[in-house]
Design a protein around this nucleic acid. Structure first.
Length: 454
DNA sequence: AACGATAGGGCCATAA
DNA sequence: TTATGGCCATATCGTT
């Protein structure tokens, strides 16, 4: 079985598309020539990802071989070597596993994607060589942002063209947000929407008709995924519903295809079912303005990369947000201004309350400053990548949010009771001083389980 | 501050 | 035939 993340056609593929993120080198220089059990295992995986860097876990090291080794040694500035002093051995470059997080972003920055291959069984019990497999694929849109600045999150945008219409699906895998938009076929409007979302990565159907000229990485997805039956299956399965009606997606083939593309890609790259993506937000064009790129630029709404460090954008000037959730919200409010009177007045009314009562503003800010990125922490549960310490941070953040809701007497359509339940459950289960690493122990709270206490 | 052992896989050469 | 020791990327720790 081939991965559906790249073309099965002879490589290099789709050369007339100038946007192609990576050009595939040809097969023969990719696969390693020697024939040992390990090389066979490696080639089996490598041939599925000819255009990506395969980081192959060998004991305490992630190693790259062959062409990959030549590339990584350059972009990571590490030594290119060979297994033995023997001439004519396969090139090798590697780093210890604990340094993964510092090298992967460099790979992404250089325009490559990284395929993480881990050991899948206990080496002690393995007969022959240990079983290995892909556990994660890191791409521009799935890299966990290290720089939290300006509330910018990494978004993946997929685009499908069908029957003279464009479907656009925007996903942020670290907050679990999924939005879908459908417009009539219009290149410049498509462009404006893409730019306004600032995607880190764009997904297109393989052999599709869409041509873009933005300087944004593109991944081509197997065209079978966006076919009618397949895409409907993907949605029904993912959202665990019996009909598309309950998602508000009756008779919406364009939206469905686009969403399927995104869900499929996330599943493939994360090697996990993205359960934290729970709902589809259908964004209609009414009620919000789509600003084009030059407007955003000339109004200086948000900071953009310039040679100078001057940043006089509206966002930077009015940004008094305390949390990254707030920063994200402010950013999206600026980029997609309201157009209808009623919601505008409601928003102003709320701002006015804080404007007139500064004491109250300070108090709320103080509480908010203790709140972590709840969206992101919650998503980490969905991705099975939360640490004990983060559980505690999540609990504290929810508690603080409940405090604010109480203070402000906000009558949001929030289920406060179940939130309190979650807080209660976490504090009963996980110890207050829970460490970052599971291996450090001291995770389970006292009095939760007698056997563990002892 | 500079060095050295160490980490854990698999391959290969050499020895028993 | 099987057992053993050297090798090989870098970060981190412990010792001078």
């Amino acid at each position: 079985m081939y991965s559906t993340l790249y073309s099965k056609s002879p490589i290099p593929r789709n050369t007339e598309n100038p946007l192609l993120y990576e050009k595939n080198p040809s097969y023969d220089i990719l696969l390693l020539m020697k024939d040992t059990p390990l090389i066979r295992q490696y080639n089996e995986i490598k041939k599925q990802y000819p255009d990506k860097i395969v980081l192959f876990r060998m004991g305490d090291f992630y190693e790259t071989f062959g062409e990959d080794a030549k590339i990584t040694s350059k972009i990571l500035n590490i030594t290119l070597t060979k297994r033995n002093k023997n001439e004519d051995q396969t090139p090798l470059a590697g780093f210890p596993y604990h340094a993964l997080d510092q090298y992967v972003p460099k790979i992404i920055e250089s325009g490559k994607c990284a395929v993480i291959v881990d050991q899948l069984e206990d080496p002690a019990q393995a007969k022959g060589i240990v079983r290995r497999g892909v556990t994660k694929i890191i791409t521009p849109g799935t890299l966990e942002a290290t720089d939290e600045q300006s509330g910018k999150s990494r978004k993946i945008v997929s685009i499908v063209e069908k029957k003279g219409r464009y479907g656009i699906c925007v996903v942020d895998i670290y907050t679990g947000m999924l939005q879908v938009i459908e417009i009539t076929k219009n290149q410049s409007e498509l462009r404006n929407i893409i730019v306004s979302y600032e995607p880190s990565e764009i997904l297109l159907e393989e052999e599709g008709s869409i041509r873009l000229s933005e300087n944004i990485p593109v991944q081509l997805i197997d065209k079978s995924i966006s076919k009618k039956d397949k895409s409907e299956d993907i949605l029904l399965n993912h959202f665990k519903v019996h009909s598309l009606h309950s998602l508000g997606l009756d008779n919406e083939p364009v939206k469905i295809s686009t969403i399927a593309l995104s869900l499929h890609y996330i599943k493939e790259t994360q090697q996990i079912d993205p359960q934290h993506i729970k709902k589809v937000q259908i964004v209609d064009q009414k009620g919000r303005m789509i600003l084009d790129e030059s407007t955003i630029r000339s109004l200086e709404l948000i900071p953009h990369l310039t040679v100078t460090n001057s940043d006089n954008s509206l966002y930077s000037i009015i940004n008094e947000t305390e949390t990254s959730m707030g920063a994200r919200l402010l950013r999206s409010w600026l980029l997609n201004p309201l157009t209808e009177k009623k919601p505008i007045l409601e928003r102003q009314k709320r701002v006015d309350v804080y404007y007139k009562d500064y004491e109250r503003t300070l108090e709320t800010k103080k509480i908010l400053s203790t709140v972590n990125d709840i969206d992101r922490l919650a998503s980490k549960i969905g991705l099975s990548r939360i640490t004990p310490k983060e559980f505690i941070a999540l609990k504290d953040s929810i508690e603080a949010s409940l405090q604010i809701i109480e203070n402000e007497k906000l009558e949001e359509s929030l289920d406060k009771e179940s939130l309190k339940e979650i807080v209660d459950k976490i504090s009963k289960t996980i110890s207050k001083e829970a460490p970052h690493l599971i291996s450090e122990g001291n995770i389970i709270a006292d009095n939760y389980n007698q056997e563990v206490d002892e």
